[in-house]
């Protein structure tokens, strides 16, 4: 005796509808492969290229609380904006973000990162200078490396001072693909 998909979905929808979930997540398809997208009441909390939910549940619980539940309804606004972005119909995201638990330096770097325009690139050093720590390019690199909301927070637009792509959580080919989508390369 198993729980039917319909019953399962009704419970998940009701849980989100009643606002009983700390963080909801689902796996969405995209041209750069499946993405695990998570959102709390505060906003988008995580986007991951690693989509095996079991590996992500504990991480999401640490970010937002133990009431983690898979639900398409919980991430519907994020899915819609991501779809528009990947179809070339959206150049900036209007989604609120959940940056709870991040260090103040990290938050200030990510806020600055969010201002890097669609289709343009910047460097780790330039970002570091913009947050008032011109010698902290390495630290900025670490923030990019750990960016838990890639794509929406466009760390793919940050490259080395020589213009080299340097690195990306989703792989360099994905970074390249995103920049091409935006017409940056």
């Amino acid at each position: 005796m198993t729980v039917s998909p319909d019953l399962d979905r009704r419970f998940r929808d009701a849980a989100v509808h009643l606002d009983l979930v700390d963080v909801g997540f689902d796996v969405v398809d995209s041209p750069i492969g499946p993405l695990l997208v998570a959102a709390s009441g505060q906003g988008v909390a995580a986007i991951s290229f690693r989509t095996d939910p079991d590996a992500q549940l504990d991480r999401l619980a640490r970010i937002a609380g133990p009431r983690v539940l898979r639900s398409g309804k919980a991430i519907a606004p994020a899915r819609r904006e991501l779809d528009e972005y990947f179809h070339g119909e959206r150049r900036g995201f209007d989604l609120p973000l959940d940056l709870r638990g991040l260090a103040p330096f990290t938050v200030s770097v990510l806020r600055e990162l969010a201002r890097v325009p669609y289709g343009e690139t910047t460097t780790y050093g330039a970002l570091a200078a913009q947050v008032g720590h011109p010698r902290a390019a390495r630290a900025v690199g670490t923030v990019m490396n750990r960016n838990r909301i890639p794509i929406v927070l466009p760390c793919h637009r940050v490259v080395g001072s020589t213009g080299a792509l340097t690195g990306y959580a989703g792989g360099l080919d994905v970074k390249q693909a995103l920049l091409e989508l935006e017409g940056a390369r």
């Binding site: 005796m1 198993t2 729980v3 019953l7 399962d8 979930v21 939910p53 079991d54 549940l57 504990d58 999401l60 619980a61 640490r62 609380g65 133990p66 009431r67 983690v68 539940l69 898979r70």
Partner: peptide, 24 residues
Amino acid sequence: QAVAIPPFERFYEEHRTEVLRLLR
């Protein structure tokens, strides 16, 4: 404590079949 309590998704998946069986 937060770490000790499993994420709800895991708890739900582990117990939903048995709960439904009892209720039926």
